[in-house]
């Protein structure tokens, strides 16, 4: 598959570029690959060293050292590395008293990690491969420790799920902690919003991935995972919270914000146009003053013509009874698939 991915970003108004605390990986790529990994993260302003933590998370995700399958154990390893590094810095005595005390509170970041797979999983005989229900994503159940005693289990033993989805199609998977969001667009419609599906869910105080703590089960409880199919010419956007909240507010008002973004990204100087768009939205009070990051991913644009004649590509699972609905929205104003899912 051909993947074109590029990040656009702007620090919050009144801040220097060096103070931007979001992170993304990769920056800009065009490549032929069977497996593509990318991520964005939003370091918490209230903490110190959040920028470094956010960068660590996206870098580790991109290079495959942080994975969905071993998410909690991988984070535990990164926390241990972080602690070791912090101890060394402290022992060198270079930190001011306040920097040391602040750092002890830990650094925090929201994260969305995303993977595109070109290979097709072998489907089981009773997979709902030809359902008409839609092409939407599915939020996966997370396998928590089976008994109550396991609630005390060390983080390394906590299992993150997630059977590999059995799809007969090229597919994607994603993990999320906090309020960075993934959007999937197809044919001028919003197909997926993950993990948050309404602007009201951006409350400003989500659980975040911390450098501290052995509370693997807490992390597991707040980890969201999802998967779905993709088709040539699909677009994926990864956004940090301010932009994602604006995007969903537009959708809720019956607008198509992806048209605005596509127009901006299609210009000769898309970063400058993106910055200009963000500044304008801030001035109109339509966008919260925060660091803003967009990672735009386009897949197999060249294969659009072939896709037009291809059979439908579907990833569908029976939703749980209390799900908010797994069907794809019929039009852009519908609520996209997804929703909070306690597991």
């Amino acid at each position: 598959m051909q993947v074109v991915a590029k990040a656009y970003w702007l620090p919050k108004k009144g801040h220097e570029e060096a103070e931007y605390e979001d992170a993304f990986a990769p920056d800009s790529v065009t490549l032929e690959t069977d497996l593509f990994r990318c991520a964005i993260a939003d370091g918490a302003t209230e903490a110190s060293f959040s920028k470094q933590w956010a960068r660590t998370l996206v870098r580790e995700w991109e290079n495959g050292s942080l994975t969905k399958e071993q998410f909690v154990a991988d984070i535990s390893r990164l926390q241990e590395n972080w602690r070791r590094g912090f101890t060394e810095v402290r022992q060198r005595g270079k930190l001011a008293w306040y920097a040391e005390q602040k750092a002890e509170f830990g650094a925090f970041a929201a994260l969305v990690g995303f993977v595109l797979h070109h290979d097709r999983h072998e489907a089981g005989a009773d997979e709902p491969g030809d359902s008409e229900a839609g092409n939407s994503a599915v939020q996966d159940d997370i396998a928590e420790p089976a008994d109550s005693a396991a609630q005390e289990a060390p983080a390394e033993q906590a299992k993150v799920p997630a059977e590999a989805p059995q799809l007969e199609v090229p597919w994607w998977e994603a993990v999320a902690v906090g309020d960075c969001n993934l959007f999937q667009l197809r044919g001028g419609k919003l197909l997926t919003a993950f993990p948050l599906t309404t602007s009201a869910q951006f409350t400003g105080g989500p659980f975040l991935v911390s450098t501290r703590g052995t509370a693997g089960n807490d992390l597991l409880r707040h980890l969201r995972v999802a998967h779905g199919d993709w088709q040539p010419h699909d677009t994926f956007y990864l956004m940090t919270d301010a932009l994602a909240a604006w995007f969903l507010r537009c959708c809720e008002a019956g607008e198509q914000p992806w048209d605005v973004l596509e127009q901006v990204l299609g210009t000769a100087d898309p970063q400058e146009e993106f910055s200009s768009l963000v500044r304008g939205l801030r001035e109109q009070k339509l966008l919260h003053n925060d660091d803003v990051t967009l990672l735009a991913i386009h897949v197999d644009q060249a294969l659009v013509a072939a896709a037009a004649t291809a059979p439908p590509l579907i990833a569908w699972e029976e939703p749980a009874a209390d799900d908010t609905g797994a069907a794809a929205p019929a039009d852009p104003t519908d609520t996209p698939q997804g929703g909070e899912q306690e597991s």
Binding site: A18, E19, S48, F49, K51, Q52, Y98, A99, Q101, K102
Partner: peptide, 14 residues
């Protein structure tokens, strides 16, 4: 005062 300083502390300073 200690709490306020820490609240305003970032990796690059206060």
């Amino acid at each position: 005062l200690q709490d306020l300083v820490i609240k305003c502390a970032k990796s690059e300073g206060i």
